[in-house]
Computed example of a mutant assay.
Amino acid sequence: MSGKRVSPMTVTTCGLLICLGVPAAVPLSLLLAAALVLVAALADGLDGAVAVVSGRVTRTGFVYDSVADRIGEAAWLVAFWLAGAPGWLVAVAGAASWLHEYVRARAVAAGMSEIGVVTVAERPTRALIAGLGLAALAVVDLPWLPPAFWAALQIAGLTQLSVVVHRALR
């Protein structure tokens, strides 16, 4: 697959579609759902690489990738709910991760340079929790644990980010 023939947005779209397949896979196999998270995470890493290598980095692609990431993460959280996690806990985990990304975006819009800080709760961490969490649920019946871990890390990451944003924008 040549980076010049495949557009970055195509790779992003494929990753998003794979993410949307994760909840559908849960009733079939938690291990399949976990594998789909892994493939989606690989696509998420490739879209940016394809954009850079092919010289097709765009502001539209940047926004589309971010929106696709949020929708994909929502799909992973739905998968936890379908696997038996309490809905309220899944909602808290999702809200915390969306707030983390929203605070960063608003801080950059307000003048903070770049991302400010890499926290314990970035997208790769969420992908690991989703993939490993779904795989673990195939062995251990603790469906509340992955979204609880997700939420706890998001709150810690939001705290880290909030401190840096406060300092940067004073």
Rank of each mutant, 00 (worst) to 15 (best):
A79C: 11
W76E: 05
P27F: 10
G116C: 07
V6T: 07
V50E: 03
V50K: 04
A33K: 06
L28C: 11
T12Q: 05
A130L: 07
A34H: 09
V53F: 09
V90W: 06
A24C: 14
V67Q: 00
G15C: 07
D69R: 08
A138S: 14
P143M: 06
L89E: 02
Q154R: 04
E73T: 00
F80E: 03
G3E: 09
L38M: 14
G87E: 12
A148H: 00
A151M: 01
L30K: 12
G48I: 03
G157N: 03
R170S: 03
G84C: 14
A33G: 08
A35P: 06
L82V: 13
G116A: 09
W98M: 14
E73N: 00
V90P: 02
V165E: 00
V78Y: 12
H100F: 11
A95T: 13
V39W: 09
V57H: 06
A130C: 11
A93R: 01
V118H: 14
V139G: 04
W88D: 12
I155C: 06
G55T: 01
D141S: 11
D47L: 07
V164K: 12
R5L: 12
G84F: 11
G48A: 03
A95M: 13
I115D: 11
V37R: 08
L46R: 05
F62A: 15
S66D: 10
A79L: 12
W150F: 15
W88A: 14
L30M: 12
A95V: 15
L77T: 03
E122Q: 14
R70C: 05
E114H: 15
A168V: 08
L169E: 00
A151L: 00
A49W: 10
R70S: 02
K4A: 15
D47K: 03
A96R: 10
S113H: 14
V103T: 11
V22Q: 14
R5P: 05
E101G: 13
T58A: 04
V117P: 01
A109L: 10
C19H: 11
V39G: 12
F62E: 15
G61N: 03
V78Q: 07
I155M: 07
A91V: 14
A24I: 13
G45S: 02
A130W: 04
A68P: 00
Y102H: 13
P124H: 04
